[in-house]
Amino acid sequence: MGAFLKVDQISKRFGGFYAVNGLSFELKQGEILGLVGPNGSGKTTCINVLSGIYAADGGTVEFDGKMIHTMPSYKISNIGINRTYQIPKCFHSLTVKENIDVALAHAKHKPQVDPVEFLELQGIMGRNAGTLNTAQQKTLDLARALATGPKLLLVDELAAGLNPEETESMTTKLLHLSEQGVSIIVVEHLLSFVHALTKRVIVMNAGKQIFEGDLESASKDPLVNQVYLGGDAV
């Protein structure tokens, strides 16, 4: 089977500044890819392009046999890509249940898991999303994403702000989704969370890929160590 997701030479600039600059990679069904790199290296921008929030200034993205780099977000959601956000973007005036209902009402695919049970949200369904703490809001973002039954899930700094116990539980859950055939791109600027999920990483710096391969080799790569200021992130 060929690539499920094929990103070819995408770039995105803000003014004259390239936040993503000619990035290419492929992903198979059910595969987990770590997208790592220091702050400001273009990871979130890459996710924003893949999810249609920004149109790419160059390059193409093919997903499940369709060219998607010019699609608006709602269509991207409809064809089976969804995501979470580095800074949570819940619907603050709605309850947790209503947040999930919006996604369920517009979902075009049957969810692989029941997002509420899977993420153990039963206890807070009636609460206003605006009153949740950051970890809960991130979990709610993930629940909304899962409610649309995504075949490709993009998670942006999901572990930041979670305690070690929550991080471990999140790891188990993402691994379970991958076993169900969901492809996942895990964006992190620290490598420990990625380590538990996958061997394969792409390291970005200044909008470009500086390394692709397995995590162990990444930690020994001189360029990777240099951008991470001596490798203390590994």
Binding site: S51, G52, I53, P72, S73, Y74, I76, S77, N78, N82, R83, Y85, K89, C90, F91, H92, S93, L94, E98, N99, D101, V102, A103, A105, H106, A107, K108, D141, R144, A145, A147, T148
Partner: peptide, 25 residues
């Protein structure tokens, strides 16, 4: 209605509501 719910969600966050499959425009 769920239409009304999506409108309210749109007002809260017009970016993430689109990722929930809502055609904001």
């Amino acid at each position: 209605s769920s239409f009304g719910l999506s409108l309210q969600a749109m007002r809260d966050d017009s970016v993430s509501v689109a990722m929930s499959g809502v055609n904001v425009v």
